[in-house]
Amino acid sequence: MNADAALLAELHRLRRAVPEMSGAVLAAVDGLLVAGDLPGGDPHHLAALSAANLGIADRLARLAGHGPLAESVVRCAEGYVVTYPAGAEAILTAITGTAADLARLHAEARPAAQRLGALWDAVRRPTVATAIPPTNDPAAPLATRTPMATLPAGLWSESGGWRSPGRE
């Protein structure tokens, strides 16, 4: 089983264990979607908002002097949105209806978040900057990777301006 299938299988397992769940999303800490089991919703937006929510909630918990965040619970008129840290670089967000038993959700989701985080931490491939010796040559390559270095070739015209892809 590949990593994507393993992540999705763990999300499905969590939803089967907690029938009141209507969806779950695993996001990277930068807000990008890793895996989603969210029928009828937008997993990309939920992933981005989950990262923002977890960052603010963690900051609030530390500022209050209560240590690192265990989870963030948002109680809504029609249910709950609960966000859990998942390993060093991921976030698990679970969506439930109002009938959800939060104690049961926590009991199932906390270990699931640990498993998902371990899977994600094992498969993610961090971007590593290539070390280039310093030089005074203005035409030398940059010392660190920049977003410009990852753009497809041909987007910068010889006359010094941006070109739209597919246009000459």
Score class of each variant (00 low, 15 high):
Met1Val: 08
Met1Asn: 15
Ala3Gln: 10
Asp4Pro: 04
Ala5Tyr: 06
Ala5Gly: 08
Leu8Lys: 01
Ala9Glu: 10
His12Asp: 09
Arg13Leu: 01
Leu14Ala: 03
Arg15Ser: 06
Arg15Gly: 12
Pro19Ile: 01
Glu20Asp: 07
Glu20Phe: 02
Gly23Met: 03
Ala24Asp: 11
Ala24Met: 12
Val25Ala: 11
Asp30Ile: 11
Gly31Asp: 14
Leu32Phe: 06
Val34Asp: 01
Val34Lys: 00
Pro39Tyr: 09
Pro43Met: 05
His44Pro: 03
Leu46Thr: 10
Ala47Val: 02
Leu49Trp: 12
Asn53Trp: 03
Ala57Asn: 01
Ala57His: 03
Ala57Asp: 06
Ala61His: 07
Arg62Glu: 12
Ala64Phe: 13
Gly65Phe: 15
Gly65Arg: 10
Ala70Asp: 14
Ser72Tyr: 09
Val73Arg: 10
Val74Asn: 13
Val74Ala: 15
Arg75His: 15
Cys76Ile: 13
Cys76Glu: 08
Ala77Tyr: 11
Glu78Met: 09
Val81Phe: 03
Val81Gln: 07
Pro85Ile: 01
Ala86Asp: 14
Ala88Glu: 12
Glu89Asn: 05
Ile91Thr: 01
Thr93Val: 08
Ile95Met: 09
Ile95Trp: 05
Gly97Pro: 09
Thr98Asn: 11
Thr98Glu: 11
Ala100Ile: 15
Leu102His: 13
Leu102Glu: 08
His106Phe: 14
His106Thr: 15
Pro111Met: 07
Leu116Ile: 14
Gly117Thr: 10
Gly117Trp: 09
Leu119Ser: 08
Trp120Val: 06
Arg124Met: 12
Arg124Phe: 06
Arg125Trp: 12
Pro126Met: 13
Pro126Arg: 05
Val128Phe: 10
Ala129Cys: 10
Thr130Gly: 02
Ala139Met: 14
Ala140Ser: 09
Ala140Asn: 05
Ala140Gln: 02
Leu142Asp: 01
Arg145Ala: 03
Arg145Trp: 00
Thr146Asp: 01
Pro152Val: 05
Pro152Tyr: 05
Leu155Glu: 08
Gly160Cys: 10
Gly161Glu: 02
Arg167Gln: 08
Glu168Ser: 08
